[in-house]
Nucleic acid binder design. Structure first.
Lengths: 175, 175
DNA sequence: GTCAATCTATCTATTGATAGGTAACGTTAA
DNA sequence: TTAACGTTACCTATCAATAGATAGATTGAC
């Protein structure tokens, strides 16, 4: 049995990943849990606080699963693809940071900073796993390309309502 | 001197590409032009109508510029990259359809359908320019990969506040 | 006089946010 | 032992701001 905070975070993540930050209200969230919007403010003083908690939790979960997956598989890039694919197919939603990253300066700055940190960590993680025989600049370039493709592929697959679009675009990274 | 409708479309496109559909209001738009929100409703009965007009115009302009660019250059994929790059660097904003595509089911269905059509046309355009020696399925895969990468790269570059991220990720497509 | 383009005024719904109340429960101290 | 207190987790009620939308008046060009 999860706590109210966890349920709130789960619900908020689900709704924001589906419709965006501005399309989700405290009242919606509260109603989904059968409580009142004032109770959501009890846990998160401002909407911004909820957003930040959400991105932090998302990042922790993401890298935790990624590290685990990378140990199982011998190909780190395949691990990244698997984690992204699972994020998409298990819920038919794009990445939380993909959504918030798109909304750019429409969301509080503290929140977009947190989102940027997620992307940077994602790029660094991938760059670190590439062969050391490749230059630092080239590793960075390839890592950026991978993250860009995966994020774009999630959005594209969701818009075109076809997860296979993600698979095809993502698998192109493995060549 | 552009008409009020054109100014409205310009302003709406600029604001939506920067902050998202839900973060833009008729009052904001009207105020930017020095008119009242009721006058915006005179041109676009509902917000949804404005959105659809916006995506249609965006698509027309996009493919018009793309065709032009493709005639100048001998490499069609380079033309696509150039058009995307210019969309990003000239205004520091992501693609209109990238934003609306992310917002997914948070926007009216008629609008998301229009966005999906843009993406499909974009994929088809690229697939068509790839060598006929390559199978149809493979051309489709490569085209999807290109669009995914370019869309993701715009978002990533905007979030990380560094246009070079776009250039590096996009140039990876030319290999 | 007609009509396009704008206005004023207003409606209802929703938003994020706050103040203050209450019921349940554990802790503490006489 | 039990009365008092504090904390947690909600609640009701309400606010000011903003949203999309509409009705109907006005203005000015042709």
């Amino acid at each position: 049995m999860s706590t109210t905070v966890e349920k709130l975070l789960d619900q908020a993540e689900s709704e924001i990943r589906q419709r965006g930050y501005h399309a989700v209200s405290f009242r919606d969230l509260a109603a989904s849990l059968g409580i009142k919007s004032a109770s959501v403010h009890y846990y998160f003083r401002q909407k911004e606080d909820l957003g930040i908690a959400l991105v932090k939790r998302y990042g922790e979960q993401f890298f935790s699963i990624l590290d685990e997956k990378a140990e199982e598989l011998d190909n780190p890039l395949q691990a990244v693809i698997d984690v992204y694919r699972n994020a998409l197919t298990s819920s038919d939603r794009i990445c939380l940071c993909g959504m918030l990253g798109a909304e750019g300066c429409g969301i509080p700055k503290t929140l977009s900073d947190e989102v940027a940190a997620f992307f940077q960590a994602n790029i660094d993680w991938i760059a670190e796993t590439l062969p050391k025989t490749v230059s630092v600049a080239e590793r960075k370039r390839r890592a950026e390309h991978s993250v860009a493709t995966l994020q774009g592929a999630m959005m594209l697959a969701t818009s075109l309502n076809d997860h296979k679009v993600f698979d095809r675009a993502a698998n192109s990274l493995l060549e």
